[in-house]
Computed example of a mutant assay.
Amino acid sequence: MNIQFERVDVSLKKQVIDHMRDAIIDGSFAPGQKLVERELCELFDVSRSLMREALQKLEAEALITIVPHRGPAVAEITLEEARAIYAVRQALEALAGAGCAQHATESDIAALEASLERIAACQGNDDQKALVKAKNDFYRVLLKACGNPIVQEMLTGLNNRITSLRRFSMGQPGRLAHTVKELEAVIDAIRSRDAARASKLCADHVSKAATIALRVMADQQS
């Protein structure tokens, strides 16, 4: 049997996808911005076929939209979509917090503390990429340790859109200091094996972030 298939450089495609994803999440590619394939190919020095595969992957992650006859553009999250995302995130993170209090190992708790230290270290500087990475690391540990693979799968799938929304809340003066205190309390509840308190603290943390982000989004759209 002779099977014909296209050989592609997977690592190169992944690099393109990762860099484009980062550029969308950190706002380098602005919401609503039209993405011209030819310009992207020149920017990343890749073929059009590879770029189209990368765009399809980012469309599947809801980070871009591809409109027939108009081409790709960076996805815009509406106020109603943001409300829905935060509602789902709040419910799932409450479950994750409770599960983590029940299932986390001492190693998991130590990893949460180390991630929180990196989050706290971002206070007083403008390194948003370091902050995003530290927060993603924190939640990666929380989800892995929660003992619920469905919660982990669903929140991981939402993560890119959640990270995009964090720009609205984390950029507000003083918010990071409050975030550190809120996550410290979450870790304390997990360490104490208090599932109910961990659940409530996770839900409260998301609620506070949502209130700020939705207010900023509403002000920008008014």
Results as ranks from 00 to 15, higher is better:
Ile3Thr: 08
Gln4Ser: 13
Glu6Leu: 13
Arg7Gly: 06
Val8Phe: 10
Val8Ala: 10
Val10Trp: 07
Ser11Asp: 00
Leu12Met: 02
Gln15Met: 11
Val16Arg: 02
Ile17Lys: 15
Ile17Leu: 12
Asp18Met: 06
Asp18Pro: 15
His19Leu: 11
Met20Lys: 02
Ala23Trp: 05
Ile24Ala: 03
Ile25Asp: 11
Phe29His: 05
Ala30Leu: 15
Gly32Lys: 00
Val46Phe: 00
Val46Ile: 00
Ser47Met: 01
Met51Trp: 03
Glu53Asp: 08
Leu55Pro: 13
Leu58Trp: 10
Glu59Ser: 04
Glu61Cys: 12
Glu61Phe: 08
Glu61Ser: 13
Ala62Asp: 15
Leu63Phe: 00
Ile64Gly: 04
Val67Ser: 11
His69Lys: 07
His69Arg: 11
Pro72Val: 02
Pro72Gly: 03
Ala73Cys: 12
Ala73Thr: 08
Leu79Phe: 05
Glu81Ala: 03
Ala84Asp: 07
Gln90Ile: 15
Gln90Cys: 15
Ala91Trp: 14
Glu93Arg: 12
Gly99Ile: 05
Ala101Asp: 07
Ala101Met: 10
Gln102Ala: 06
His103Met: 01
His103Ser: 03
Ala104Ser: 15
Thr105Gln: 06
Thr105Gly: 04
Thr105Arg: 02
Glu106Arg: 10
Asp108Gly: 00
Ile109Trp: 14
Ala111Ile: 08
Ala114Ile: 06
Ser115Trp: 01
Glu117Gly: 15
Arg118Pro: 00
Asn125Phe: 15
Asp126Pro: 09
Asp127Leu: 02
Asp127Met: 01
Asp127Ser: 02
Gln128Tyr: 13
Val132Gly: 13
Val132Arg: 11
Lys133Glu: 15
Lys133Phe: 11
Ala134Pro: 04
Lys135Tyr: 12
Asn136Lys: 06
Asn136Pro: 14
Asp137Gly: 03
Asp137Phe: 08
Asp137Thr: 05
Phe138Tyr: 01
Phe138Arg: 00
Phe138Trp: 01
Tyr139Ile: 07
Val141Glu: 05
Val141Lys: 14
Val141Ser: 12
Lys144Glu: 15
Lys144Leu: 06
Ala145Asp: 06
Ala145Leu: 09
Ala145Ile: 05
Cys146Lys: 02
Val151Trp: 10
Gln152Ile: 05
Met154Asn: 07
Thr156Gln: 06
Gly157Met: 12
Leu158Gln: 02
Ser164Phe: 10
Ser164Asn: 13
Ser164Asp: 12
Ser164Met: 14
Arg166Asn: 11
Ser169Glu: 03
Gly171Val: 01
Gln172Arg: 03
Arg175Ala: 13
Leu176Thr: 07
Ala177Gln: 04
Thr179Gly: 09
Val180Gln: 09
Val180Phe: 10
Val180Arg: 07
Lys181Pro: 14
Glu182Trp: 12
Glu184Ala: 04
Glu184Trp: 03
Glu184Val: 10
Ile187Trp: 01
Ile190Phe: 06
Arg191Gly: 12
Arg191His: 10
Ser192Pro: 14
Arg193Gly: 00
Arg193His: 01
Arg193Gln: 00
Arg193Glu: 00
Ala195Gln: 04
Ala198His: 03
Cys202Asp: 05
Ala203Pro: 09
Asp204Arg: 10
Asp204Phe: 13
Thr211Ala: 08
Ile212Gln: 00
Leu214Trp: 04
Leu214Gln: 03
Leu214Met: 05
Arg215Glu: 11
Met217Thr: 03
Ala218Ser: 05
Ala218Phe: 01
